[in-house]
Amino acid sequence: MNIIGEHIVLRAVEEGDLPKLQEWANDPSIQSMLGGWHFPVGMQDQKKWYDGLSVGSTNQRFAIDVPGDGIVGTANLVNIDWQNRNGFHGMLIGDPDLRGKGIALDTVKTIMSYAFNELDLARLDTDIIEYNVRSIEFYTRKCGWRVEGIRPSWYFRKGRRWDKVVVGITRQQYEEFMACSI
């Protein structure tokens, strides 16, 4: 089953996507904006990651597909806590020429609709390294998410410590956001 947005399709990651995913995994300009620690990724490790994907998992990863362009990024719903109805969302748009074209907004709206309306989650959150101001403003100004906290000195990048900015959205906030977006 694909998850259909206005301009994008969230679909399963396919083996044919691996070269593009490996390229993005090894792109310092992309990885510097993401959490976690990153090491060079060879195709063998990319394949192991792919082989570990499971539809029954609490960690779901999607290819962001734009009809006519193919895969342009990835999105996820991970660490899904079914008892408390929470999930963590992350996203990357791999091609810098496609950033600022509405793909990310359509992706987040599609993820929120799926999470709240299909999976019946109560809230989503994500965290962003403090110098990724573009992402913080995107989620809070364009997607209805709210800054929920700061975790000081969480990341080490560029020779210094950086804060983790935690942003999230509840189902009620999502419904209010969507009502204002119409």
Results as ranks from 00 to 15, higher is better:
Leu10Phe: 08
Leu10Arg: 09
Arg11Tyr: 09
Ala12Tyr: 03
Gly16Gln: 06
Gly16Asp: 07
Leu18Arg: 05
Pro19Gln: 04
Lys20Trp: 02
Lys20Asp: 07
Gln22Asn: 08
Gln22Glu: 13
Glu23Gln: 15
Glu23Gly: 09
Ala25Gln: 07
Ala25Met: 10
Asn26Met: 09
Asn26Arg: 09
Asn26Leu: 10
Asn26Tyr: 10
Asp27Trp: 06
Asp27His: 09
Asp27Tyr: 05
Gln31Gly: 03
Ser32Met: 06
Ser32Arg: 10
Met33Trp: 04
Trp37Gly: 07
His38Phe: 08
Phe39Ile: 01
Pro40Ile: 05
Pro40Met: 12
Val41Asp: 13
Val41Trp: 00
Met43Pro: 05
Gln46Pro: 12
Lys47Ser: 12
Lys47Leu: 15
Lys47Asp: 07
Trp49Thr: 05
Trp49Ala: 09
Tyr50Cys: 05
Tyr50Trp: 09
Gly52His: 12
Gly52Asp: 13
Leu53Arg: 07
Gly56Val: 00
Ser57Asn: 04
Thr58Gln: 11
Asn59Cys: 04
Asn59Val: 02
Asn59Gly: 04
Gln60Val: 09
Gln60His: 08
Arg61Pro: 04
Arg61Phe: 14
Ile64Trp: 07
Gly68Leu: 07
Ile71Arg: 01
Ile71Asp: 03
Gly73Pro: 01
Gly73His: 05
Ala75Val: 03
Leu77Ser: 09
Val78Glu: 12
Val78Gln: 07
Ile80Gly: 02
Ile80Val: 14
Ile80Glu: 01
Gln83Lys: 12
Asn84Ala: 13
Gly87His: 00
Phe88Ala: 09
Phe88Val: 14
Phe88Gly: 04
His89Leu: 13
Gly90Met: 14
Gly90Trp: 11
Met91Cys: 05
Met91Thr: 07
Met91Tyr: 10
Leu92Glu: 12
Ile93His: 12
Pro96Lys: 14
Asp97Glu: 11
Asp97Trp: 00
Asp97Val: 13
Thr107Met: 14
Val108Asp: 01
Lys109Met: 12
Lys109Cys: 00
Lys109Glu: 07
Ile111Leu: 15
Ser113Cys: 09
Tyr114Pro: 00
Phe116Pro: 04
Phe116Arg: 05
Asn117Asp: 10
Glu118His: 15
Glu118Tyr: 11
Leu119Ile: 03
Leu121Lys: 00
Arg123Asp: 14
Leu124Asn: 01
Asp125Trp: 06
Asp125Pro: 01
Asp127Leu: 05
Ile129Thr: 14
Glu130Arg: 05
Glu130Pro: 01
Tyr131Ser: 07
Tyr131Cys: 11
Asn132Leu: 06
Ser135Phe: 11
Ser135Asp: 13
Ile136Asn: 03
Glu137Gln: 10
Glu137Ser: 10
Glu137Ile: 04
Tyr139Met: 03
Thr140Phe: 03
Arg141Glu: 14
Cys143Lys: 01
Gly144Leu: 06
Gly144Tyr: 04
Trp145Asp: 06
Val147Ala: 09
Val147Lys: 15
Ile150Trp: 07
Ile150Pro: 05
Ile150Tyr: 10
Arg151Ser: 15
Arg151Lys: 15
Trp154Glu: 15
Tyr155Thr: 02
Phe156Gly: 07
Arg157His: 13
Arg157Gly: 06
Lys158Ile: 02
Lys158Leu: 02
Gly159Val: 08
Gly159Asp: 10
Arg160Pro: 00
Arg160Gly: 06
Asp163Thr: 06
Lys164Leu: 04
Val167Cys: 00
Ile169Asn: 02
Thr170Ser: 04
Thr170Ile: 00
Arg171His: 02
Tyr174Trp: 15
Tyr174Ala: 08
Glu175Arg: 12
Phe177His: 14
Ala179Met: 13
Ser181Gln: 09
Ile182Trp: 11
Ile182Cys: 02
Ile182Glu: 08
